Simulated scan of single mutants.
Amino acid sequence: MDKKSIMKIGIVNYGCGNIASISNIIKYIGYKPEIINRSEDVLLFDSIILPGVGHFKNGMSNINFSGMRNALDKRAELDKPILGICLGMQLMTQSSEESDETGLCWFDSKTIKFTELENNKNKILVPHMGWNYVKEVEENVFFEEEDRFYFVHSFYVDALKSQEALATTIYEEINFSSAIKKGNLVGVQFHPEKSHQFGMTFFRKYFNKI
Rank of each mutant, 00 (worst) to 15 (best):
F45V: 01
D41A: 11
G88M: 05
G59H: 01
D73Q: 14
S5M: 10
G67I: 01
E77Y: 09
K32I: 02
G84P: 00
L43W: 00
G52M: 07
N58D: 15
A71C: 10
N70G: 15
Y31K: 07
N24F: 09
G30H: 05
C86S: 03
H55M: 04
I11Y: 05
R75Q: 01
F65T: 13
M92A: 06
K8M: 00
K57P: 00
I11S: 14
G88V: 02
I6N: 10
I82A: 03
M7T: 12
I49R: 02
H55R: 04
I82V: 11
C16W: 02
V53C: 12
L72R: 02
N58T: 08
L83F: 13
I29L: 07
I25G: 13
N18R: 08
I11M: 10
Y31F: 15
I11W: 05
I82R: 00
L83Y: 06
G30I: 02
I11C: 13
I48A: 10
N13E: 13
M89T: 04
G84V: 04
L50W: 00
A76E: 02
I19Y: 08
I26R: 07
S61C: 13
E34G: 06
M89P: 08
E77H: 11
F56S: 03
F45T: 03
S66K: 03
I9H: 11
P33A: 15
G30F: 03
I25H: 10
I9M: 12
P81T: 08
D46S: 11
F56E: 06
F56I: 01
H55K: 09
N37K: 15
K74I: 10
F65L: 14
G10C: 05
Y31C: 08
S39R: 09
R69P: 01
R38C: 15
S21L: 10
I11F: 12
K74G: 06
E77N: 13
Y14H: 07
R69W: 06
I48Y: 00
S39Y: 09
M60R: 00
L43V: 03
I49F: 04
G54V: 06
N13D: 15
R69A: 12
L87F: 06
F65K: 15
D46E: 07
D46K: 09
I85K: 05
K80W: 01
S61Y: 07
G17Q: 06
I9R: 09
G15K: 02
S23I: 00
